[in-house]
Design a protein around this nucleic acid. Structure first.
Lengths: 136, 136
DNA sequence: CGGGATCCTATTGGATACTG
DNA sequence: CAGTATCCAATAGGATCCCG
């Protein structure tokens, strides 16, 4: 059954109907599949921290300032599993471990930047919306 | 100020290009402040579902296919609080409630679209990375 | 220095029953 | 139809101790 509604002024996104028409079900949805692994509390912040240069474990911990050691280890492992960053061990004493964006991770940054710039540009508007909602 | 190769002296993250020069602390970070409210399991999918036209409650539920009624209500309320969508009640019997993107919500879609297109384009690469990681 | 292992709490989210 | 209310399971995430 075709969609009888008009198309959006700019085709920013496929509709859920279109996604479904391509054979994606809730169990096979690229949005859920990919985004559910970077939607956690720290992943995006870590990717941003690594955008300019590699960081060692302790450097990252200081850069994020309020992340627990457990979550830093765990999130780094998750991002490495997704192929977004690499982990390099230098066998010095004590050992040094360097985390860096992979080309795949680097390729995600422009898209993330669009969301981040939107967040920064609209933060005040959102705060106003929250206040108005909470008042009612 | 030219970019330097050593770590910044403070624990503040630097963001992408045009906000890179702006320091922010964990307590005043637009990324955390804004994104922490839409990085849940359903918010992005709901925004996508509403991109073309408003939806009623039951329509949305069918569109998302596997969302519980509780989470749909809760996520819609959250997005309304952020000012991303509007809720309109038509006093018919039985009542009809229509959810629609606000201009603010609509303005977020291009940025989200960039991430989603990245996810679709790189899903296979990510699956390969996961398989390689899990094998080791 | 860079973690691993363990314990604990807080939050998320699903299932179900009920309502105007 | 569009929710609310309640209970419960699963997960996320912090604190602490330990080790090579």
């Amino acid at each position: 059954m075709p969609r009888q509604t008009k198309a959006p002024p700019d085709p920013f996104l496929k509709s859920l109907d279109d996604i479904r028409a391509e054979g994606f079900s809730p169990d096979n949805c690229p949005i859920r599949d990919v985004m559910s692994h970077i939607n956690d509390k720290w992943s995006v912040l870590i990717l941003i921290a690594l955008q300019d240069r590699p960081h060692r474990f302790g450097e990252l911990r200081r850069a994020l300032a309020d992340i627990s050691q457990r979550m830093l280890t765990q999130t780094l492992k998750g991002l490495q599993r997704e192929g977004l960053l690499s982990r390099t061990v230098f066998p010095t004493t004590p050992p040094a471990v360097e985390y860096a964006l992979t080309p795949l991770g680097l390729s995600l940054l422009p898209a993330l930047g669009a969301v981040i710039r939107w967040a920064e540009a609209n933060q005040a508007t959102i705060h106003a919306a929250r206040a108005a909602f909470d008042e009612a």
